[in-house]
Amino acid sequence: MSGAPTPDECRHVRLHVGADPHSLPADVQAHLATCDACRRFRDETLMLDQRVRAALELQLAQFRTPAKSAPRSRRFALAASILLGVFMAGGVWLLRTPPALAGEVVEHVLEEPDSWDARTPMSPADIGQVLDMAGVDFVGDVPVVYAAPCMFRGRHIAHLVILGPEGPKTVMLLPHASVDGRRAFSEHGLRGVLLPAGTGSIAVLARGADVPADLEKALVSAVRWR
């Protein structure tokens, strides 16, 4: 770019300045050395960028305060929806029996198909991290080949795969989902069982095979919710 700047050159320069004012190509910088209007545009953009950066840097202390209360009209709507929700939730709760839980467990497992492929026992430290995040202790001798913290029904849970003589089995430790009693299920080629364990439950799933009764007992006795 030499001689008097042309409108096309200025357009090109302003596009770069407006897009990435801190990283300008050499031809743009050369243009800025000769064009007062574009240089002013660059200076303004740099000042604006400082403000944009400051605007984006929200203070977390403020960020964590509760949001402002809803306007009055919205509060009525909210109250009505809560009442409706309570009635509906009552009905849903009655329907949300172990089969519903089993379906959610199966759906969750199907979303992590790679977990079945693991064959190498994980280190106690790695397993411990997952259990810590889920708030559970799991004491036993079963080889864990996969352990991951997962979100389930809005809470952290431990998703494990253990490797036994009959192949891998998924074990999900569910501190916030209780079941009245042992419940076997079969969905999408997976056979499993929901086991009551204190205030929570354990889901055990296998592909095309039943879960051995001795394994069920071992798992229940291995779990301690924190």
């Binding site: 106690p124 430290a125 790695d126 397993i127 411990g128 991290q129 259990l131 810590d132 995040m133 708030g135 202790d137 799991f138 004491v139 036993g140 001798d141 079963v142 864990v144 291995a222 301690r224 924190r226």
Partner: peptide, 16 residues
């Protein structure tokens, strides 16, 4: 399986 049953939850280096 849990190396520190009942231990305080501090997490490992990667978690931290």
């Amino acid at each position: 399986m849990n190396p520190r049953p009942g231990a305080a939850s501090e997490g490992g280096p990667i978690t931290r």
